[in-house]
Design a protein around this nucleic acid. Structure first.
Lengths: 136, 136
DNA sequence: CGGTATCCTCTGCGATACTG
DNA sequence: CAGTATCGCAGAGGATACCG
C-alpha cells in the first residue's frame, strides 16, 4: 500500500487533559477539514446532480491529478459520504454517488458557500486594503 | 519579512479557459479553505465571546505555536474577519476581536459544526467499517 | 508582552510509469 | 477505464533564538 488513508489529518490530541467540554471538538474538526479540502468540496458539488464515473469527475474538475481524485474519493467513501459501485464489465466501470449522509452534508456546505459568495467582495476589498497598507 | 501572507492557498487558476459559470468559485474556495483551517476556526470560536489578547488565545488553544497563531491572526485580519487593536502601554497589549463580518461567518460555520456533531457517530462508524473491510 | 527571523523536518501532492 | 506504486520537490508548520 502506498499512502495511508487514516487521517494524519487533524489531531488536536495535544490537549494535556481531555477537557470534556471540547472533547468532541476533535471529531468535529476532522469533519470540518473535509469541508476545507478543496477537492472534497468540488467532488461533492459535482456529485450533487447524480452519480458520475471516475474519469467523468476527473474531466469535470480539471486540474485534479489522478492520484488526488482517487485519494479524495477514498476519503469520502471512508466517511460514508459517497458510495463506490463497480460494474465488472470490460472495460471496467465505476460509479460514485452521494449517500444520504453526503447529501445532508452538502446542505450546510451550500449555506456556507452562499455566505462566501455574498461577502466575497467585502473580503477581497479587505485583502486589497490590507495588502496595500503593509507594502507598496 | 519571513513568510508570505498572500495565499499560496488555493488556486484553481488551473482552468484552461476561465469558465464564467464557475469563475467566482475560486474566490469561494479561498473562503472555504479558511473554514477548513483548524486554527482559523478555533480562533474564531474563541473570539466568539468577546475580544482576547494574544497570549490569552495562545493559552486557550493549547497546542498552537506562536508562529501559527500570529500567521492565523494575520490571515483573519487580512480577510477583514478580525480587528487588531494595539494599546501602546508597557508591557504592550494587543486585543483581537471579531468584526461584524467575522461574526457573520461564524453563523454558517456553527451550522456546519452542529451538523458535524449530529452526524459524528455515523461518520465514525462508517470509518471503522471501512477500515475493517480494507485491512484488519 | 507580542511579536519577527531562521532553520529544519516532514508530508502533501504532482508527474510518471506500470497493471487488471 | 480505473486504478496502484514510486519518486521528488515545494511548502506547511514546529522549535528556537532574538527584538521593541
Amino acid at each position: 500500500m502506498g499512502t495511508s488513508l487514516k487521517p494524519a489529518h487533524i489531531d488536536l490530541t495535544a490537549s494535556p487533559r481531555p477537557d470534556p467540554d471540547h472533547a468532541d471538538c476533535r471529531g468535529v474538526a476532522s469533519v470540518l477539514s473535509r469541508v476545507g479540502d478543496k477537492w472534497s468540496v468540488l467532488v461533492i458539488m459535482m456529485l450533487g446532480d447524480g452519480p458520475k464515473r471516475f474519469n467523468e469527475l476527473k474531466r469535470m474538475i480539471n486540474g485534479i491529478s489522478q492520484r488526488m481524485l482517487t485519494l479524495t474519493l477514498r476519503g469520502l467513501e471512508r466517511d460514508g459520504l459517497v458510495t463506490r459501485t463497480i460494474f465488472p464489465t470490460i472495460p471496467p466501470r465505476v460509479d460514485y454517488e452521494l449517500t444520504d449522509l453526503g447529501r445532508g452534508l452538502s446542505e450546510p456546505v451550500k449555506a456556507l458557500g452562499e455566505w462566501a459568495m455574498d461577502h466575497l467582495t467585502q473580503i477581497e476589498a479587505a485583502r486589497t486594503r490590507f495588502d496595500r497598507r503593509n507594502n507598496g
